[in-house]
Computed example of a mutant assay.
Amino acid sequence: MINETALLESPTLRGSVLDRTDVLDKVKALSLLPDGMHVTTAMVASYFDVGLEAIKSLVKDHRTELEASGYRLLTGEELRSFKNLSGIQSRTRSLALFPRRAVLNIAMLLRDSEVARQVRVYLLDTEYLARTQPVENPAPMDAASLDARIDQRITHVLGTTVVPMFNALIETSSEHRRELIALRAGIQRIEKRLRQHHARLQRLESPRENRPFAGVMAAMDAMIGREFEEHVAELLRRDGCTDVIVQGGGRDRGIDITALTADGRRLVVQCKRFAPHLSITSPEVQKFLGAAKVLHDSEVALFVATCAFTRDALNIARESGITAVHRGLLEEWSGGTPLSALE
């Protein structure tokens, strides 16, 4: 497994993981310029909570490496062209631009930044899992998660390029003005929905104070279904449960794990490893309720998910005595906090 020291010291290792820029958004939202692709030196410094000089010093010491990852300094005609295309208003004679790969490269070089350290921890966790897990056919939820990660970039393009283009066409066209206005309205609705989608994903993934430890949810997001069930089973054993059995297969009758709590109560668990931007809905909780109470006559029922629950789903769980272990609660449980339902 690659360790943090090796990552800080080896340009070769850093270069081998530069494509994993998604880890930046796992730790903190990275604001982009209107072109949806680059950030400035000041924006990089703000992301890592360090001063401008810290970033400038890194660029000076590692310029060749950073240029290989996409860093460039615009001047002259190239700078004027970029300002015109992106709409940036600036009187500077030069402008340093960092694509996401270069920002990730900075994270692997910057020692005195807690944000950079969290990025490295998350990166190392995901890279280790990618290297050690068997190849699996990606589930539809993984594809949806990947789509969500580019929502912000698409929104930037729609808001700064496509909509202004329609504005210009509407101003100069009389024959098709009504159709153009309708098209613009449709694009603006899409832009709004993408912003809402991205904001929801950011709320689910944003760092919070006193998180048990960085990377725990990245590890679970990388698991396949059976591995996630085994992970939950280990948490149950850690908290004193006995006779823990992972059912698995197509004959589980709606239950993934059965066990006895430390004080002897019958326990059943449903495990759902969904993408973080999805939600457990009320029909799924109702289905589990029938299996837990009717088929298994359980005294304790846990619905464990790597995502959130809808309000209706939470209400049904609360009214029926099911413990909804949502993403935040799952992270705390995995980090060592006992689950109150098992006490």
Score class of each variant (00 low, 15 high):
138 P>C: 02
155 T>E: 02
177 R>A: 15
151 D>G: 07
177 R>K: 14
160 T>C: 10
166 F>L: 15
137 N>T: 14
156 H>M: 08
150 I>A: 08
153 R>S: 08
150 I>N: 09
171 E>C: 10
151 D>E: 13
151 D>K: 07
142 D>W: 01
140 P>V: 00
135 V>C: 04
169 L>P: 00
163 V>P: 00
159 G>Y: 10
150 I>S: 09
133 Q>Y: 09
140 P>M: 03
160 T>E: 06
147 D>N: 12
134 P>I: 00
143 A>N: 07
150 I>W: 02
144 A>H: 12
173 S>N: 12
139 A>R: 11
154 I>H: 09
178 R>D: 14
131 R>W: 02
163 V>Q: 04
168 A>E: 11
157 V>Q: 11
179 E>N: 12
145 S>F: 05
152 Q>L: 10
170 I>K: 03
159 G>H: 12
161 T>Q: 13
132 T>P: 04
144 A>M: 06
134 P>Q: 00
132 T>V: 15
136 E>V: 11
134 P>V: 01
146 L>Y: 03
169 L>T: 00
156 H>A: 08
155 T>V: 09
174 S>M: 02
165 M>R: 10
147 D>A: 14
140 P>Q: 03
146 L>M: 12
153 R>A: 03
161 T>R: 11
171 E>A: 09
147 D>Q: 14
141 M>C: 07
148 A>Y: 03
172 T>E: 15
135 V>I: 14
146 L>W: 08
149 R>V: 04
160 T>P: 01
159 G>I: 10
144 A>W: 09
161 T>Y: 06
163 V>E: 04
137 N>V: 07
131 R>K: 11
134 P>H: 00
174 S>W: 05
178 R>N: 08
172 T>K: 12
161 T>C: 09
157 V>P: 08
144 A>D: 13
165 M>I: 11
168 A>N: 08
179 E>W: 15
163 V>D: 04
155 T>C: 04
150 I>C: 03
156 H>N: 11
166 F>T: 03
166 F>Q: 00
171 E>L: 10
145 S>L: 06
148 A>R: 10
156 H>F: 07
167 N>L: 05
